[in-house]
Nucleic acid binder design. Structure first.
Lengths: 217, 217
DNA sequence: CCGTGCCTTTCGGCGTACCGAAATATTGCT
DNA sequence: AGCAATATTTCGGTACGCCGAAAGGCACGG
């Protein structure tokens, strides 16, 4: 019976989310910024979580999920994304409205209710933004992908996923009609922007946007 | 902007619930027992709530909701009962399974989501047990009623509401096919039991059950 | 190779909400 | 009225999760 709490779940989720977009492990500072809390609080909590076997951490080093921590993190992410999907599909929320609500509900919903929601939604593999929803056993939908920002000229593939980190990027892509499923072809790459062919039109995207998009490899 | 917290909401809800079945105000001891916490904790919290203007309380006296406290309590009760109704009507819960889930969710759901649930359910006036659901403006469905235990011989009326305090009573009534809407006629009253005519059959109910049922006056 | 600046940790402290033990008030009974 | 049982409050203490200030470590540029 490993110990847990809403606060610990938030740490786990944040550490995990970092690994989804970033290859190197998260540092305490980045973790503190992402959670909106003071670095000293992170030191303390990370120590507690390391003692509980959820993360590994050496002083002045980065924070990594252990196997147990990863399992927990996936469970939290599953909750979060299922709730978001449910809010959008059944409760009339727009995508950008769901985050705060899910943030709270993910700590409040029982396994029983989560299962009922999952069943109602038909056990979706991805949420409305293309983020993979871990299954109850921790397995994840995964297709080969590349960051649009890393794709070579000529590369073509459907959008799999869009980061919801930056609302401005979200709005831009929404306005351009680019969402999960949209097929993009990279026509030109420069330092600042990347140009793609999308639904017959050429679109110039800033680097921030290109780094927020996964396309099929 | 009066201060609040899940703990305070639980106190408010419990004080309010007491007044629904009991004419005299709740004492700290009863409050402590209902909340499952130590009396000393109640003293402390009640003092805080009195300072916040949510309850009135003189040392060694009972606890009463102020107008502000009542408004808050009704809001919490509204959340709780709407969530219970939703769990039963849409999420496949049986009545006796909803309480714990609602207990947690009532502190987690936003006004926005509550409104969506209320709308989906068609703005119900009572939950599956007949408990009145306060409207968003604090108004309550109310029909004249008497406790079955107080009803005179010959009294007849539909069951409006059944207390969910005692699961044994709940089960008994369920087994007898008595629920909200069932028309009862009191045929005999004694100290220990009350006999009613329900759907053509005579039923003898223990006093605990008779005190858990509201019937139309 | 050393110092400056950023990162991380340590330390003392705070607010919330709870507890048990002990002191005090109230109430009911004779 | 007096006393015992019960209710309530006071008091010191705990766990959690956060903070800011200050101390300590680290890494890069000159």
């Amino acid at each position: 019976m490993p110990p847990t709490s809403p606060a610990i779940e938030d740490y786990l989720k944040t550490v995990y989310a970092h690994t989804e977009w970033q290859p190197d492990p998260i540092t305490p500072k980045v973790l503190a910024d992402a959670l909106g809390i003071a670095p000293s609080s992170v030191t303390e909590m990370v120590k507690k979580m390391a003692a509980a076997g959820l993360v590994s951490h050496v002083p002045y080093g980065a924070v990594r999920l252990t196997e147990a921590g990863l399992a927990r993190a996936l469970a939290v992410v599953r909750r979060h994304r299922l709730i978001e999907t449910w809010l959008v599909r059944e409760m009339g929320y727009a995508w950008h409205e769901v985050h705060d609500e899910a943030e709270v509900l993910e700590h409040a919903i029982s396994d029983r209710l989560l299962e009922a929601i999952d069943a109602r939604l038909g056990r979706p593999a991805r949420d409305p933004h293309g983020d993979a929803i871990p299954a109850a056993d921790g397995t994840l939908a995964s297709e080969p992908w590349v960051l649009l920002g890393d794709a070579p000229q000529g590369h073509s593939g459907a959008v799999i996923r869009i980061s919801d980190r930056d609302p401005a990027v979200l709005r831009l892509l929404h306005d351009l009609g680019i969402g999960p499923g949209t097929v993009l072809t990279v026509t030109d790459v420069s330092t600042e922007t990347i140009t793609v062919q999308a639904q017959g039109a050429a679109r110039r995207l800033p680097a921030e946007a290109a780094l927020a998009i996964w396309v099929a490899a």
